[in-house]
Computed example of a mutant assay.
Amino acid sequence: MGEFFDWGLTAQLLGYGFVQQMLVAGAVLGAVAGLLGPLVVTRKMAFAVHGTSELAFTGGAAALLVGVGVGYGALAGSVVAALLLGLLSRRDSDRDSVIGAILAFGLGLGVLFLYLYKGRSANKFGLLTGQIVSVGSTDLWLLIGASVVVLGVLAAIYRPLHFASVDAAVATARGVPVRTLSVVFAVLVGIATALSVQIVGALLVLSLMITPAAAAARVTASPVRATLLAVLFAELAVVGGILLSLAPGVPVSAFVTAISFLTYLLCRGFGTPQTRTV
């Protein structure tokens, strides 16, 4: 185990610029995922996040095929997916079937794009499981810029959005534009999902977007404390996952998902009966 986790090598790698970029990208993404996660859990959108990640994968695969940045392709694919989910799911009863249809279509199209792509196989694998080492300075600025936009819009709509998330019927009666907020929030989640793909991959996005928030919901019923804990848990998972993955050279997603799930199990075990609802 000591050879697997070579802390001397880890300390040495921390001196490289690309590793520092990885940590900054991970920290920014952890903050975004932690802030959005509790609302995603409250609105029961876990399956929607998974569906959106498949379209982010499709967009990233298309970007590989045409030779543009994977981050831009993933972002475009996830926004398209979010808009489709928001516009087609006019009733809650339609949501799962719409997500299933979009997910299957996106995954099939993404597999076709990867088949047609003749470049390095590592790039294909990275879309599914994450490849944060490929996050360059351009991708980092894209991630930071997109995150600032997401957090700015979230801050502007948070109060009515939280009201609509807790009780949509009463919010509608009070004149809150529930439908519009749902579409806007779906787009925010889509952008965050696209940002997550390069770190944890399309298959494991839930480990950042859902698991930290679900863990936080096990230990507190307060929306504010749940959000703060979700951010803390997401940061622990992504930054801790990056640090643990450096020396052994194992994909970051393996450690991110392990830390997230362990955190969830601990919170589930120590949560109070009043908060054990997730």
Rank of each mutant, 00 (worst) to 15 (best):
I191R: 03
I191Y: 06
A192D: 08
A194W: 02
L195V: 12
V197K: 03
Q198W: 00
V200M: 09
G201C: 05
A202Y: 00
L203A: 11
V205Y: 01
S207C: 08
L208I: 08
M209S: 09
I210R: 05
I210K: 05
A213C: 10
A215R: 01
A215F: 02
A217L: 12
R218Y: 11
R218T: 01
S222H: 13
V224Q: 15
R225A: 15
A226P: 10
A226G: 14
T227Y: 12
T227S: 15
T227P: 11
T227V: 12
T227G: 12
L229K: 05
V231F: 08
V231Q: 11
F233C: 05
F233Q: 02
F233E: 02
A234E: 04
A234G: 09
E235A: 14
L236R: 08
A237G: 07
A237R: 06
V239H: 09
G240C: 09
L243A: 05
L244I: 03
L244Y: 02
L246R: 02
L246N: 04
A247Y: 02
P248C: 09
P248W: 01
G249W: 03
P251R: 08
V252Y: 01
S253W: 01
A254H: 04
A254M: 11
A254S: 14
F255C: 11
T257W: 00
T257M: 13
T257D: 00
A258K: 06
I259D: 04
F261A: 14
L262T: 15
L262V: 15
T263E: 03
Y264Q: 07
Y264E: 07
L266A: 15
L266N: 08
R268Y: 13
F270G: 08
G271N: 12
G271C: 06
G271L: 11
T272A: 15
P273G: 12
Q274F: 13
T275F: 13
R276V: 07
